[in-house]
Design a protein around this nucleic acid. Sequence first.
DNA 1: TGCACTTTGTGAACGAGGGAACAAACCGAG
DNA 2: CTCGGTTTGTTCCCTCGTTCACAAAGTGCA
Lengths: 222, 222
Amino acid sequence: MSSSRIPEATVARLPVYLRALNALLDSGQATCSSEELAAAAGVNSAKLRKDLSHLGSYGTRGVGYDVEYLRYQIAREIGLTQDWPVVIVGIGNLGHALANYSGFSSRGFRTVALLDADTSRQGEVVAGLKVRDFDELEAIVSEHGVAIGVIAAPASAAQAVCDKMVAAGIRSILNFAPRILAVPPGVDVRKVDLSSELQILAYHEQRKSGADRVPTTEVGAS
Amino acid sequence: MSSSRIPEATVARLPVYLRALNALLDSGQATCSSEELAAAAGVNSAKLRKDLSHLGSYGTRGVGYDVEYLRYQIAREIGLTQDWPVVIVGIGNLGHALANYSGFSSRGFRTVALLDADTSRQGEVVAGLKVRDFDELEAIVSEHGVAIGVIAAPASAAQAVCDKMVAAGIRSILNFAPRILAVPPGVDVRKVDLSSELQILAYHEQRKSGADRVPTTEVGAS
DNA sequence: TGCACTTTGTGAACGAGGGAACAAACCGAG
DNA sequence: CTCGGTTTGTTCCCTCGTTCACAAAGTGCA
């Protein structure tokens, strides 16, 4: 059951478990039960145990999980025991925030270059890195073996940036621009869509407050 | 089939359809087929049609959908025909980016206040709004009828900010801090987790490049 | 009007994910 | 060694979501 394929939903939760384990480790806890870890991760314990069972049997019945050991196993499974060089394209407001975000530079990920097509931004130093020209992308990818690219450019430029990234050999893209990206097979794109998230909240909020205003009782059969 | 409950997966895609329709409208297209719209939204046409069928029958067989009409219907369904006042708490790098992000201020959402507990940040003007003290949250929420809050504060402060928001009457929260938030029933939280997204990409990237390096053939039975 | 053609809306099969419940395994006391 | 208590790993079942395939409904032309 260990090295077969891990369900996508489980993969998406592994980073959450990892963060919860780090927090437990910081608080000095050596072992934890599935109940404890599940509470810290915001899921129920049955789901947690099933998720972990996809990686292997890393717990001890009657005892629980060794925090440090489990943390390492999850990190290894995700691939954080190796170093991932990352390139960020588009150093506007969002690009600045991402470059300075500690979660990006720490723990397995290393920002090796900040790029922008706007010459007025080039040369500026952000988070210890000088902003370089977008045309240098291919050279940088080759030099550092970059596999992951982050697009923080405006929507109008996103597809062009994406195409260049793919041409340069990048096969995993994190896209912050509000645009659907077309990529060839074998390239993964994950999008972080700020306005979509807000709109989803608005939908539910409308239904919450609308329950006492809009009756929706049009079912009155004659 | 129109006004019953809409599946969560469909709700999550409605903003994508809305954006695709806006793009079509900008390019001057008056009608579109499900195939066209699906391509623009990055889904297959069967899924698109089923999603739209949950809202009602807004298309014409043999013809397609009227872009402007469908756009309005989706916007109404999401709740974007009304105005949603929003408060952003935590005006660091990310808060700056969010405040300036056009997708937040336009189209139904209006940022009414930027708050920060750090006195050194207060008074600064960002995106036309002066940064105010976090303690003013409750007054602002009452005054503007704010239902949606955005947390861009550091992880260590996120839960405290969340609690204050809930106490002030906010029932929908968009959380950018890397921390699981505990909220009472009736409050919705959506999280945008930058480092999780990167880690998920890393996982898949590892499997892609690992296929020719790590054999994973430990199945050799004795 | 009648017919060929296009496109939507939906029914049904299929697959993935979630939750409850339980057997298997481990610990520690006596 | 045995037994009670605890916690994991797994099985079963149900719900939700996706995809296929097709009938229903419209258009335009002869």
